[in-house]
Structure formats: structure tokens, C-alpha cells
Measured scan of single mutants.
Amino acid sequence: MGFKLLSKLLVYLTASIMAIASPLAFSVDSSGEYPTVSEIPVGEVRLYQIADGVWSHIATQSFDGAVYPSNGLIVRDGDELLLIDTAWGAKNTAALLAEIEKQIGLPVTRAVSTHFHDDRVGGVDVLRAAGVATYASPSTRRLAEVEGNEIPTHSLEGLSSSGDAVRFGPVELFYPGAAHSTDNLIVYVPSASVLYGGCAIYELSRTSAGNVADADLAEWPTSIERIQQHYPEAQFVIPGHGLPGGLDLLKHTTNVVKAHTNRSVVE
């Protein structure tokens, strides 16, 4: 069995187990497998329904001669939608809004960016022009300005110390501490036991640490421990890039980060 097929099978099995364990909360999309990078042309966006009122959005972007996937989250909030992270750029984010209108038909009224990198804030200006209120932590807003990236308009308070959590509509926002970046936030959907790890969490097929220019490698494993301790009931975990899975993604990420750190020390 090929690795790609095995990865998709694991996603399907995880979703099936969740649907059985929580039949009222989960209505997993039966329309197909989780979209992969090879299936999404740059400039297009796919939506994948995880649970009743919960979707991931998947886009792709060219970077350094390669094409990478990027995940975000959409959560229903009454007759409105909360968006977590842009679709990595203005063109993708405009396509995301169009796809949401086509498939869901509810307005996106608020959006949260989970850290300051372009795959999370690139497209904020498109959201703002569409009347979406954009939010991020003060740290993310400051770092985005320093980096020359787009800056969300509103500040999220109460997320300055490791372990801080605040309720934001249908989700809980959690600051686990520094990891992929010093400002990275985690998003949890309690009604569906869905954990969105953003770039602080890796997919299972990833074996290298990737972009760690703004990471705190020493603190990252401790931050992941905080996530595990705060959300032990999480059933569906979405990484910032690639295929979702279960809580095993947290341990896998820790292993990859520690291996990278150990290699760096040896070198």
C-alpha cells in the first residue's frame, strides 16, 4: 500500500471513529477524501466538511520552486461564519470567499490569524475590503508590521502568557507558548472536538522541520505538551499544512522538532 493511500485511509478511519463516538456532533463529509496538494491548482481553494458547521479550507501556493498546501478553518456561528487564517495570499483568499459563498452561503463576518507569517495573514486586506472584521493577538499584529505583512485590524486580548485561553464565538483560542513562531495560536472547536494546530503542528508525513527561522526550538516541545494537557479530548487535529489526523500529530511534531534540534547540535 502506497504512503499517500495509507495517509488518506488514516484520515478516513479517524473521521469514521469520530462519527461513531459522537453521532450528534459529527456529520463528516462523505463526498470524498481530504484534498491534497496535487489536486488543488494554485489560485483555487477546496472546502472539506469535518463536522456539522465545521470545515477546513485548503489552498496551495508556490514557494521556492515548489507547491505547498495550506489549511485553515471555518466555523459556523449562528447565521454567520468565523474564518481562521487566510488562504495564503490575496488571490487565494478572494477564491476562498467565493467558494464559501458557493458552498455554504453564509457571510464571513470575523477572521482570526493564528500567527504573523504570510500563509496566515496574506489576504487580510481582501477580507477587510469584503467587510470582514480581522483579528490577531497584539504580538501577531506587531510582528506582521515588522515583517511588512498585512496586519489584522483588531487585537485579541488575554493571550499574552503561555497557557492563556479565551473564548471567541464558537471557538476557544489558546496560546501554548512559542513553537513554530513566538505568537502562534491554537484554535479548538469544543462542539466538535476539532483542534486546529496551525503551523505549530505537523502532518504525519512530514519528517523535516522546514521553516524554523522564527521558531523557538527549545520551547516548542513544552508548548505541545500544554496543548495535549489542555485538549486531551480532541479527536480531529488539523495541521497548518497537509493531512489531518488525531492527537498523534502532536507527538510526531515533537519528535521531528527534537530530531532537528539534535542534528543542529551535532553539526
Rank of each mutant, 00 (worst) to 15 (best):
A66Q: 15
E80Y: 06
R110W: 07
H115P: 03
L127K: 03
R128Q: 14
P138T: 08
W88R: 01
G53S: 10
T254G: 13
A130M: 13
L83K: 00
S155P: 13
A98D: 10
A200P: 01
L249V: 04
A165P: 08
A25T: 13
A59F: 04
L185T: 03
I224G: 03
N184I: 05
G43C: 04
V166N: 05
G245R: 03
V42I: 08
A133H: 13
L9H: 15
M1Q: 05
A234D: 00
R120G: 04
E33F: 09
V75D: 04
A200E: 03
P232G: 12
P170I: 05
V45P: 14
Y196K: 03
Q229Y: 09
R120Y: 01
D216Y: 07
V212F: 09
V108Y: 00
G240E: 05
P69C: 06
V37I: 13
V187F: 00
N71T: 05
E225M: 12
G65Y: 05
R46L: 08
S161H: 13
E80D: 08
D125P: 05
P23C: 13
G72Y: 03
P23T: 10
P239K: 02
H241Q: 03
V166I: 12
E203T: 07
V194T: 06
Q49R: 14
E233V: 11
V121D: 02
E99T: 14
R46I: 10
R128N: 14
P69L: 14
P107Y: 07
E99V: 14
Q228M: 14
H115R: 01
A90S: 13
H260F: 08
L47A: 03
R110S: 10
S264H: 10
V256D: 04
G197E: 03
H117K: 01
L24A: 11
R167T: 13
V266Q: 14
E39Q: 11
S7I: 11
T14S: 10
Q229K: 14
S16C: 15
V67E: 15
A66G: 15
R206G: 14
E225V: 11
W88F: 02
G89L: 02
I74M: 05
V121K: 02
G163N: 08
D85C: 00
A59Q: 15
V42G: 10
W55D: 02
T60R: 08
V108N: 01
A25Q: 15
V266Y: 15
H241N: 01
V28A: 11
L83E: 00
M1T: 06
R76T: 08
L47K: 02
F63R: 07
G122N: 15
A129S: 12
S31V: 09
V212P: 10
A179M: 06
L6W: 10
V54D: 03
K4E: 09
S191C: 04
P152L: 02
A133F: 11
Y175M: 04
A178R: 12
S223C: 04
N149C: 06
L10D: 15
L185D: 01
R46M: 13
S160C: 05
